[in-house]
Amino acid sequence: MIELKHVSKTFVMKKSRASARRLLHAVQDVNLSLSQGKFIAVVGESGCGKSTLGRMVSGLIPPSAGDIVIDGKTMTQAPRHAWKKWAQLVQLIPQDPYAALNPVRTIKTSLAEPLLYHHKIRRGELNQRLESLLDMVGLDAGNVLEKFPHQLSGGQRQRLVVARALTVDPQYLVADESVSMVDVSLRLEILESMKQISRQRQLGLMFITHDFRVARYIAQGGEIVVMYLGRVIERGPTEEILRSPQHPYAQSLISAVPILEGRERRLEEIVPRNYELSVDGVPEHGCPFQPRCPFATEKCVKESPELRGVDHPEHLVACHYAEPRKLIAAAN
């Protein structure tokens, strides 16, 4: 199990003029746990800290504060060599396949490298191993191994990145869908196979997205975590979050999903006071969502709401005026 305990990440931003420095709290005081076989979707707008969180979970960047504990071992305080093991246990799948694959290397070289680096196999077994890996993600080895990334379609490249993550037998996958370059119609096939593979191998899956449709699909039976400006503002069982979201920001995100007329119906719509994330940064006091929140009061300006339990024991919300709202129903 991976546990995040009060994990924060702060970037120091140099202002262009003079030397004044500003701190950017990309992730703030996040507590989470991801066990094998569990699926979590992390949802939020661009810039909310989702990728930063994902990179910390994968051991690619260290937290500024807090601890990450894997199977009882505090990794963030472990010696450097333990981090190699961490990188193998938790594989990050960046969803920009162009960035993830070396353009001047064949697919075979790209896939073989992590296998040999982590001493997962001997050279003689390489081909057989590659074939079974590619087969798992629905690619034909004969067709792709000798090719270069640009010779594959977008969907094939994306599946390849999944195959590459699986080379080292990870126990956890962190998939970051920050850039979705693939057509929606092709994206689902990849999500389907990722879900299926994670189930078969009992992997813990943390899936990062800004799309509530994708979040529900991936984290079916699992958990949804909604982030806003570095903080977890709502989390809970997937169906519970969709059925009765309680934080005005989570409600705004669900309300922003275009409805499939004739299949779904909108019952209520929560519209934030501002369509854009504030460019002026996070308010120093009070609720981070307060400048955009349609329900904000004086209290929200002054007091920061704590993440607290509501109704369902695993459903947590950080809002002074948390209130369940039913936003979507099936069309009749």
Binding site: Q156, L188, E189, R213, R216, Y217, I328, A330
Partner: peptide, 24 residues
């Protein structure tokens, strides 16, 4: 049908959601 069927619904059953097969 494939296009519509590959959009995961916000409510209701997820079991007959499937991506389009094959390459573009």
């Amino acid at each position: 049908k494939g296009l519509i069927g590959s959009i995961p619904p916000l409510v209701g059953d997820l079991s007959d959601v499937h991506g389009l097969r094959g390459n573009p």
